[in-house]
């Protein structure tokens, strides 16, 4: 028996919206420690890793490890039938091939259940080694989304460079070029509005902007985003999910031929 209950159903909606553009089908792996998902986009350029720890749920029961294959667009559509304040419960039998989403209104005067067929998804699980990154930038998530969107009006790729001066986002296109520099800024009143740069070595990497724009669908999950880069590794873009875990996106760089 699997039973996961979340008082803040809206959170689950945000999680699905943050993944469904990048990944169509994925396995939700549930164990006593929580729920996780790892999936690559169809071109194997980006990878999304989700963790929702069991202690972040209001009720979490998982008698047996389960890997439940789902079409993320179908789940997102289903969750749109839940109110933002609804309590959402996921239920599945150990041997069943369906999952039930139950939505309860906050006053408990409306209860809906939607049953969805599970899919058999063969997915490759990648081992992601722990790494020390040359540069880690923490900044407001809305600012990061704004920068990606603004640069995409000029070009398709972005060069992200971290130096002592700050983090520079540069692009070039047919109509011209653009540079946006963000300096470290820890003097603002609210920590979530600050930009913090931890740099061991300067680093400069090139990425396809359209993937970064997909990652920013996670902006409603967190006020801040952390971007980690090393010259010989995919970048990591992480949004923390309050008290529960994270959604991390890994993006392979563009490299010289």
């Amino acid at each position: 028996m699997l039973e996961l209950r979340l008082l803040q159903g809206g959170l689950l909606k945000k999680v699905l919206e943050a993944m469904r553009e990048l990944v169509t089908d994925a396995n939700f792996d549930c164990s006593r420690s929580g729920c996780s998902l790892q999936a690559m986009d169809s071109s194997h350029v980006a990878l999304v890793a989700l963790l929702l720890r069991s202690d972040g749920f209001d009720h979490f029961r998982c008698d047996r490890n389960r890997s439940m294959g789902m079409n993320l667009n179908h789940v997102a559509k289903l969750l749109r039938c839940a109110g933002n304040d609804d309590i959402v419960t996921l239920k599945a039998d150990d041997d069943g091939d369906t999952v039930t989403f139950m939505f309860e209104s906050p006053k408990q005067d409306k209860i809906a259940d939607f049953e969805m067929k599970l899919m058999d998804i063969q997915s490759e699980h990648l081992g992601i080694p722990e790494a020390e990154y040359q540069a880690i930038v923490k900044m407001p998530s809305q600012e990061f989304a704004r920068i990606c969107r603004d640069l995409s009006t000029i070009g398709d790729t972005v060069v992200i460079s971290v130096t002592k001066e700050g983090v520079k986002f540069s692009t070039k296109g047919d109509i011209g070029s653009a540079n946006i520099v963000c300096r470290q800024n820890t003097t603002v009143d609210k920590p979530e509005e600050s930009t913090v740069i931890e740099m061991k070595d300067p680093v400069s990497l090139t990425f396809a902007l359209r993937y970064l724009i997909s990652f920013t669908k996670a902006t409603p999950l967190s006020n801040t985003v952390t971007v980690s880069m090393s010259s010989d590794l995919p970048m990591v873009v992480e949004y923390k999910i309050a008290d529960m875990g994270y959604i991390r996106y890994y993006l392979a760089p563009k490299i010289d031929e």
């Binding site: 990878l47 490759e124 699980h125 990648l126 992601i128 080694p129 995919p234 890994y250 392979a252 563009k254």
Partner: peptide
């Protein structure tokens, strides 16, 4: 010209 690399060339299966 820069070529797009793939995640699978950095992380191993397993």
């Amino acid at each position: 010209v820069r070529q797009q690399s793939q995640i699978t060339s950095f992380f191993s299966l397993g």
